[in-house]
């Protein structure tokens, strides 16, 4: 568990960009910028409106690191666990939980909090709490690497 550098300015700037994106979608298209909701529209069962728009959003999201590298000539720094069973389990929980709970960090955490939605406020408090407990247990109780 290596420390990472505290980056308040870059993080606030990145957060502001996320906000600009969310405002753009609402102001122009009347949509919530919730990633699990947008990706969900591309998965069965189909029938929701806005599937082409969701496809355009996801393709552009996937293009973001390529655009970032092309403009800045800097590699994107990241450290990802290569523990395959752990990452598969984490992915299943994130996808299933976001689907069942009707949103993720963006839909509940950014857009929902900004609408002062009681459901989103509760969801954000719950997932922040279980995420912190999970990291505490993994790192300080079990003492594992991730």
């Amino acid at each position: 568990m290596a420390a990472t550098e505290f980056t308040p300015i870059a993080s606030a700037a990145g957060g502001a960009l996320i906000g600009v994106s969310a405002v753009m979608l609402m102001l122009l298209s009347g949509r919530i910028a919730g990633i699990s909701g947008i990706v969900g529209r591309l998965l069965p069962p189909y029938g929701q409106s806005g599937i082409p728009e969701a496809g355009a959003f996801v393709i552009a999201l996937l293009a973001a690191p390529i655009a970032y590298a092309a403009v800045t000539h800097e590699a994107v720094v990241q450290a990802v666990s290569s523990n395959v069973p752990l990452m598969v389990g984490a992915g299943l929980l994130v996808g299933f939980g976001a689907g069942l709970g009707g949103g993720c960090t963006s839909g509940h955490g950014v857009c929902g909090l900004s609408r002062l939605s009681p459901r989103s406020i509760v969801a954000t408090l719950v997932f922040m709490a279980t995420a912190m407990v999970t990291v505490f247990v993994v790192r300080h109780v079990i003492g594992g690497a991730p």
């Binding site: 996801v58 999201l61 996937l62 990802v80 939980g97 963006s106």
Partner: peptide, 25 residues
């Protein structure tokens, strides 16, 4: 909502990824 958010948080804590960043990465 409560169970979904709870499970989501566990997965987020285990992997360090939520849906947006996982796709962007």
């Amino acid at each position: 909502l409560l169970i979904g958010a709870g499970l989501f948080g566990i997965g987020w804590g285990l992997g360090g990824y939520c849906p947006g960043p996982a796709l962007a990465a």
